[in-house]
Simulated assay, not measured.
Amino acid sequence: MRIFRYIDENGNITLAAMNDQNHMFPLAYRDFLHLVEEAEKQGVTPLTLVQQSIQNTSPLETSLEQLQLLVPIEAPEVWAAGVTYERSRDARNYEATGGKLDAKTFYDKVYDAERPELFMKSTAARTIGPDGELYIRSDSNWQIPEPELGLVLNKEGKILGYTAGNDLSCRDIEGENPLYLPQAKIWKNSCSIGPVIRLAETVQDPYSLQITCKIHRNGEKMVEGTANTSQLKRKYDELVSYLIRDNIIFDGTVLLTGTCIVPPNEFTLQDGDQVEIEISEIGVLSNPIRQRVKQTASVS
């Protein structure tokens, strides 16, 4: 069962559920967290509550692609894990050494260390949903999407569901100096999640999800890559345990679990590109890329 939000014909924000037959049903809950809260009050699982709610409801007479989708949850914070796949480690080494192949750096230590790399990626105001515009950072010349599986958490760190995420990243800024990581990761519209939240209880094996990323330019496919969550170096519970350690997280926090798909080193996003991230059992998160006017810092 997948949960999503959309704007109906009357302009109202509506929560809805979609079953595995792709039948969609509106739900009488404010948002995903309200659904989870009501399930807890009634002593049932979110899936059971959804099934009860749609039992005598007619499905929507439309398709998901025809709806005006919103971000499936207004996550107060989006965190991300880095160097959780071997491919990500190799790409970060390439950036940090100025393009040396098979180079070894501190990223190898992170990959093998007990403690994972975790960093703040976004907030609700910076995070967009399906079909929303992702912005190219104006002071970077080497930017790529990072397709990732996202964990939707409650404040105790319980995994409530799974979604797709795009961790837009500046490889040149990150490679110039690791202390520049926040600037390489965080800016307006640098993160997207969606299109739905797959209820955790309905995913049989979260370590066998297929991830595909396609980038189109002027109608032509420029990049396509595939990976599987079975390639992940760390377990989800391990990542979550470090996130909540001596920390406060909020209901609806999303933790992106890292990427295993990296475009060729000569590739950078351009204005007008279209990025599609598909994760099996979840769906397709699609976003256009836009170049904003370059902004320079003023010196007084």
Rank of each mutant, 00 (worst) to 15 (best):
L60T: 07
E86I: 07
L151N: 02
Q66L: 05
K109G: 12
K41V: 06
G165P: 02
T163M: 02
Y94S: 01
A91C: 06
I159N: 06
T62D: 08
V71E: 07
E77D: 11
G99S: 10
E133D: 13
A164D: 00
S140M: 09
G165M: 02
E148I: 08
Y94P: 00
K41T: 08
E117P: 02
K41M: 04
V110I: 15
I73M: 05
T45K: 02
A75G: 11
P46S: 10
D108E: 13
K158R: 14
V71G: 01
Q55I: 01
Y85M: 08
Y107R: 11
I54D: 01
T84K: 00
S138M: 00
S122H: 08
I144G: 08
A91F: 07
A96D: 03
I128H: 01
L49H: 07
Y107T: 04
L153C: 06
T97M: 09
F106C: 10
F106H: 14
W142K: 07
Q55Y: 05
R92C: 08
E117G: 03
T105Q: 09
E61F: 07
P145R: 08
T127Q: 08
T123G: 12
D112M: 12
K158C: 06
N93D: 08
D108C: 09
R115I: 15
L69R: 13
N166Y: 00
Q51E: 15
R126F: 14
N141S: 12
L134E: 10
V44A: 06
R115Y: 10
E146G: 10
Q66Y: 01
N141P: 00
V71D: 02
V44F: 01
V44E: 13
T84F: 01
G165K: 05
Q55P: 00
E61Q: 14
M120W: 09
D108P: 09
R115P: 00
T123M: 11
L70S: 03
L149E: 07
Y94F: 13
T62R: 04
K158P: 05
T45H: 01
K41Q: 07
T127Y: 09
F119P: 07
